[in-house]
Simulated scan of single mutants.
Amino acid sequence: MPRLIDHAERDRVIAEAAWTVLTRDGVLAFSVRNVADEAGLATASLRRRFPTQDALRVYCLRLVSERVTARIAALDPATDPATLALSCLEQLLPLDAERRVEMEVFLALASLAPTNPAVRVAYGEAHDAIARVCRSVVELVAGTPDDTAARRVHALVDGLALHLVHQDPAEDTDWAVGILADAVWPLRT
């Protein structure tokens, strides 16, 4: 009788291995072979699920978005609007080990977007999702849409994320939350 494979568990193992390769060895070492080795799988087994390196890259990039989206969806909508807005934006920043890994993966793969059409599409989807969060946050706090304010918040989030991922992981991240709060509170009506 053939062995049944838990595809969701296999995908989790592959993603964990892929993220490890990316964060430990960098984007140049990101290959189906290296990820398969890290996951303890045969390369052919990994290729059945991800036939190309681009398919694996896109999966990893979309997984970051899915995880961020799930965290935002889990927030309590009954929270004060400004507090909820700040909590939503915090989910986009590498404020702890889990989000730092996500950001490192996101940035490593995003660096391929200008020259890789498949990654460019997935990166564009993630960028648009972040823009939607920023627009929603501004509308939630200000009570009205404001594209200019949403772009400012988006730019601030991008900049803070870059600074946070480049600081030592042991350093405090409260400074970034403070800057973010300073940007959100004035939007209140």
Rank of each mutant, 00 (worst) to 15 (best):
E104A: 08
R67A: 14
L61F: 09
Q91F: 13
L92M: 06
L89R: 00
L95M: 07
R99D: 10
L95C: 02
T83G: 03
D96Q: 09
C60H: 00
L95Q: 04
A85F: 12
M103H: 11
L63D: 15
D54Q: 13
Q91A: 12
R57I: 02
L86F: 07
C88Q: 12
F106Y: 15
A70T: 14
S87C: 01
V58Y: 04
M103N: 05
T83V: 09
P81T: 00
R71Q: 15
V64F: 10
L89I: 07
V101Q: 13
A55I: 10
E102F: 01
A78T: 09
A78S: 12
D80F: 12
Q53H: 08
Q53G: 08
D54P: 01
R62P: 01
L89Y: 03
Q91H: 10
V64G: 01
L86I: 10
S65G: 07
R67T: 15
L56P: 07
V105M: 13
Y59M: 09
Y59S: 11
D80E: 15
A97M: 05
V58C: 08
A78H: 08
E90V: 04
S87W: 00
R71M: 11
V58T: 07
L89D: 02
T79H: 01
V58H: 12
L93W: 01
L86C: 04
A70W: 06
V105R: 14
P94H: 00
V58P: 06
M103E: 07
D96R: 14
Y59F: 13
V101Y: 05
S65T: 07
E98D: 15
S87L: 07
P81Q: 10
A74Q: 12
A82M: 06
R67K: 14
A55D: 03
D80H: 15
D54H: 05
A82C: 03
E104I: 12
L56I: 04
D96M: 13
T79I: 00
E90S: 04
V101S: 01
L93N: 08
L95F: 01
L84W: 09
T83E: 07
Q91Y: 04
L61T: 03
L84T: 06
P94F: 02
T83Q: 03
S65E: 05
D96W: 14
S65W: 02
C88H: 14
R62C: 05
L56K: 08
R100P: 10
A85M: 02
A74E: 13
D76I: 11
R62F: 06
L84Q: 07
L61R: 06
T79E: 02
L89Q: 02
A70C: 15
P77N: 02
D96E: 15
F106Q: 10
E98N: 09
D80W: 14
C88F: 11
V101E: 08
D80M: 11
A70S: 15
L84H: 12
A78N: 03
T79F: 00
Q53S: 07
A97H: 03
E90K: 06
Y59R: 04
V58L: 09
E98G: 13
E98H: 10
E102W: 08
